[in-house]
């Protein structure tokens, strides 16, 4: 089994406050890790370190393919003054073969000419998730992907994540609600000593 990610003795502090330390784990293809922890425990920081956006205070991250990461964070990376169609073009997914199927599944296909600012938060989140659904990355990093999603969309997301695991992709995500995806756990509340 191919190792996609190896974290060795990670430590992260903000203003002298240690969020986590001594965190080591491996992530293999076709596997998932669910990051748990209370508010401010460092879940987002850990996911940003894995994505390459931040650097750990100590320790190291080794990735099999440094740039082949799909990160979905709290920010949607959508332009409010553009239409859904224009945003799809900016997300570089407008030419994808499966775009219409996903738009239909997420009930966005009739909203192509609508300004993103007019969409509800949940609809915007679904639009942002298209980047994930139409990705070709080996490693998927998701920070609270279910926030703002209705039950049906959460099911679509979980079913997609299960498919991605079967396609040998590696997942790491944080979520306060339980996702129906078979995964290992990292509890950051216990990663401080």
């Amino acid at each position: 089994m191919k190792k996609i990610l190896a974290a060795d003795n990670l430590c992260y502090s903000i203003n002298e406050t240690k969020l986590f330390q001594g965190l080591s784990f491996d992530l293999f293809e076709g596997k998932a890790i669910h990051v748990l922890g209370g508010n401010g425990s460092g879940k987002t920081s850990l996911l940003k370190i894995i994505s390459g956006l931040s650097k750990p205070t100590r320790g190291s991250i080794t990735k099999s393919n440094k740039k082949n990461v799909c990160f979905v964070g709290h920010k949607n990376a959508l332009k409010q003054y553009l239409t859904v169609e224009d945003n799809l073009s900016l997300l570089e997914v407008d030419k994808h073969n499966d775009i219409n199927a996903f738009l239909k599944k997420l009930e966005l296909s009739k909203l192509l000419d609508v300004m993103v600012a007019s969409l509800s938060y949940g609809q915007q989140k679904k639009l942002a998730l298209l980047r994930l659904f139409l990705n070709d990355s080996d490693l998927l990093v998701l920070d609270e992907p279910c926030v703002g999603l209705d039950r049906k969309s959460q099911d679509i997301l979980c079913s997609f994540l299960r498919e991605q695991k079967e396609e040998k992709k590696a997942l790491i995500f944080s979520s306060h609600i339980s996702l129906d995806v078979d995964s290992e756990y990292i509890n950051l509340d216990k990663a401080i000593s």
Binding site: L53, F71, G73, H74, K75, N76, A77, K79, L90, R131
Partner: peptide, 11 residues
């Protein structure tokens, strides 16, 4: 603010 720079920095 909207996270586009984050995505570009990863890419």
């Amino acid at each position: 603010n909207d996270g586009s720079l984050e995505q570009m920095a990863i890419k």
